[in-house]
């Protein structure tokens, strides 16, 4: 598994743990009332599990296992310097996906509850901006991996 995928998968496991613990806190709050603020953490619970855990795991594993680009596979064509990694697509662009995705998750899951607790408008703006980060992550990942969605064994 390449270092890029390992980072995604480890981050996804951290979000799985955090999301599950937040879910537990939400359920405990039904039993022992911990405060009105706890309910606002539902946004973070959903964000951590749906985007942080599942989406991030899928991206990491797809980057690892999808068919490689045909770079260096044609007869006589030069082998790339970093065979394997170069055949996965643009590594810098993949890191942009990672940073954007996690910035989006954290902005939303931190500032959306903070806004509902404090009513400070700036927090709402920051939570709103999270959508742009998540969109950037989605676009950069799809652009990067698009060429690898192909039949195995035949150069493109």
């Amino acid at each position: 598994m390449p270092a890029t995928s390992r980072t995604f998968v480890k981050a996804s496991l951290i979000y799985l743990g955090l999301g599950a613990m937040l879910g537990t806190l939400l359920l405990i709050n039904r039993w022992v009332f911990l405060g009105t603020m706890i309910g606002s953490l539902r946004v973070s619970h959903i964000q951590f599990l749906v985007v942080g855990w599942l989406t991030q795991l899928i991206i990491g594993v797809a980057w690892w296992l999808f068919p490689p680009l045909a770079i260096g596979l044609r007869p006589g064509s030069p082998r790339p310097a970093r065979r394997g990694q170069a055949q996965r697509g643009s590594e810098p662009l993949f890191w942009v996906t990672f940073i954007s995705l996690n910035a989006g998750i954290l902005l939303r899951s931190v500032f959306a509850p903070l806004h509902s607790w404090t009513e400070i408008g700036f927090f709402n703006t920051l939570a709103g901006i999270s959508g742009l980060f998540l969109l950037t992550a989605a676009i950069t990942f799809v652009v990067n991996v698009w060429g690898r969605v192909r039949e195995l064994g035949r150069p493109r």
Binding site: G23, L25, L26, L27, R30
Partner: peptide
């Protein structure tokens, strides 16, 4: 419910 959440966590 709280126990179910704790088990899943």
């Amino acid at each position: 419910m709280a126990l179910s959440g704790a088990l899943q966590a």
